[in-house]
């Protein structure tokens, strides 16, 4: 069993993940990478992988492991770097990111040995699968939890709401849905493209228990992940900033997917290191 990291260690972990992600994105050259949406969920994944989740690279197929799927699979740099931190993916493997023949592409491919539970890339898919995984745990009396991270833009997809409705119907208190609410989708602010305001009310109306936290505050994240619901799914709306940690990326939609110049890379590294 891995050691649980405390808040200070999780913050340091998130910083290292950002630096590694910048390296990987920069090495990808003109292929570019999803830096903005990766940086909005760094603290969320650092908290889950660093402390909350019961997973072990020595026993990656343990039936009792917690399951995590990022339905906003384009934030894969966050997941790869988090899995690197806890020993599922080596540095050498990370260095193959987006190279020809790699296992580590721009969206994750299912590979339990490397800690990846699902082949992502099509939005609105994973929440239903999470419902199935959580149902199985319930039916077989296992105590593990299923964590599904979704984007706020992604919630435009109606399939998510089918899944949310059923998660409440089936009383899945072992399912935790985290919304990375960074307020931006590819084409612009969610408020302008497709308004999903009153998100908490929406989830509450779907019979979920909803919490709202600062998605970059690891103390709040640690606290909220340790809260449990009795007979319904727990939805955590994490207010985040797309591109968090790099001034020229924050809240700029172009950084949903883009490539870094040498100068931008150096500035970004400096800003992340200096925080």
């Amino acid at each position: 069993m891995k050691q649980k990291r405390d808040k200070i260690e999780i913050d340091a972990m998130a910083k290292r993940m950002r630096l590694k992600a910048l390296d990987m994105a920069f090495r990808s050259g003109k292929k570019g990478a999803h830096l903005g949406p990766a940086f909005s969920c760094m603290e969320i994944m650092a908290t889950l992988y660093g402390n909350i989740m019961n997973i072990d690279p020595e026993n990656p197929k343990d039936v009792n492991r917690d399951r995590f799927v990022s339905s906003k699979a384009h934030s894969v740099l966050t997941q790869y770097t988090a899995l690197n931190e806890i020993g599922f993916i080596s540095e050498e493997e990370l260095d193959t990111f987006q190279e020809n023949g790699t296992k580590f592409g721009g969206h994750p491919i299912i590979d339990l040995e490397h800690g990846m539970e699902y082949t992502g890339g099509s939005l609105g898919m994973a929440l239903s699968v999470g419902v199935g995984m959580a149902l199985d745990a319930k039916l077989k009396g296992r105590k593990n939890k299923v964590y599904i991270l979704v984007g706020d833009g992604e919630l435009d997809e109606g399939s998510n709401w089918e899944a949310i409705m059923s998660a409440a119907q089936f009383k899945l208190n072992n399912l935790v849905i985290i919304v990375d609410k960074n307020g931006l989708q590819y084409d612009g602010p969610t408020s302008e493209i497709m308004n999903i305001d009153n998100l908490q009310n929406k989830f509450d109306a779907f019979n979920c228990k909803t919490s709202v936290v600062d998605g970059h505050n690891t103390a709040e994240l640690l606290d909220v992940f340790n809260r449990f619901t009795k007979d319904c799914p727990h939805v955590i709306i994490a207010r985040t900033i797309k591109g968090k940690g790099v001034s020229f990326m924050e809240n700029i939609r172009e950084w949903h997917h883009s490539s870094l110049s040498q100068r931008q890379y150096e500035q970004a590294v400096e800003e992340v290191r200096g925080e």
Binding site: G132, M165, S166
Partner: peptide
């Protein structure tokens, strides 16, 4: 319920396990 997309997703999650 009347939700075919969700049905296949749930089925996949159950099959995954």
């Amino acid at each position: 319920g009347i939700a075919e997309q969700n049905m296949i997703g749930i089925a996949a999650g159950l099959a995954k396990e």
